[in-house]
Design a protein around this nucleic acid. Structure first.
Lengths: 132, 132
DNA sequence: CTGATACGATTACGCTTGTAAACTGAACTC
DNA sequence: GAGTTCAGTTTACAAGCGTAATCGTATCAG
């Protein structure tokens, strides 16, 4: 079992979509100050720094980020791992839409032509590994 | 391209999670009256009939359901197909979390041990079809 | 006809989300 | 050391969501 631990997110707290964008920035590079996060995100979303600060605060409250004082400001670091978040969201989707089974999701993606040749190749090789 | 058409959902209207439960009931059997939908859902969620009615109304407003008068009451029928909804949600997730590519999602599910032996077998056979 | 019912429509209300401005206190500037 | 700046905190506020109760009216029972 080589899974990631440290769930964070006390009690079923969920991360919203806007908050997720902030998490992505911090998963890409951490720790960062609010201003840095703002810069990192600028371009993707057109947020004022105030908005970024609000989202950071909410994420801290939700237990998704840790703060570390650095002089007068804070540096933010994710408390939950991206893999955990991604895993949770994926599972939720699979549960909600595909009765908890991954094969139908896969079938759907295949049917929707959402799979590139490269995807297919990669998945195939993953399958080989799984079968060993 | 043999996809399903008839999107419904005027302007980026989204279907919420509670609303989705109602849609599922109607995708399973339609048309149905509000009371029937309520019964169909009872067991899954513990909603009062009033709640079901509210959700039905909102779905009609969003253009996700059509109403057909049947005497004094309405019969509701989905205007969007389940496949479209499922496809949309899947795509959103894949875009948001996996850069739009399906292989990483698959890899994640595999890594998280979220794939049963049966899943693997099914996916393998799907792959065979795709490769032809 | 008249009262009880059964429906959809309207209204409610607290919580979350997106988006931000205002406030407050510490720190740097001159 | 007084004013400006900068960072986090508090407050704001509309829209969406979950969850319903209430209202208004058409119909059914008697």
């Amino acid at each position: 079992m080589g899974g990631s631990k440290a769930k964070g997110l006390l009690g079923g707290e969920r991360i919203s979509e806007a908050e997720h964008a902030v998490m992505e920035a911090l998963w890409a590079r951490a720790p960062m100050s609010a201003a840095e996060v703002g810069e990192a995100i600028g371009g993707q979303r057109d947020w004022s720094l105030a908005t970024v600060k609000t989202l950071l605060s909410r994420l801290v409250t939700k237990g998704a980020l840790a703060t570390e004082a650095d002089g007068r400001r804070f540096l933010y670091t994710p408390l939950i791992e991206r893999a955990d978040y991604v895993g949770g969201e994926s599972r939720r989707l699979v549960d909600r839409l595909f009765g908890g089974r991954a094969a139908p999701l896969f079938a759907h993606l295949a049917e929707a032509e959402a799979l590139s040749a490269q995807d297919i190749a990669e998945i195939e090789s993953l399958l080989q590994e799984l079968k060993q």
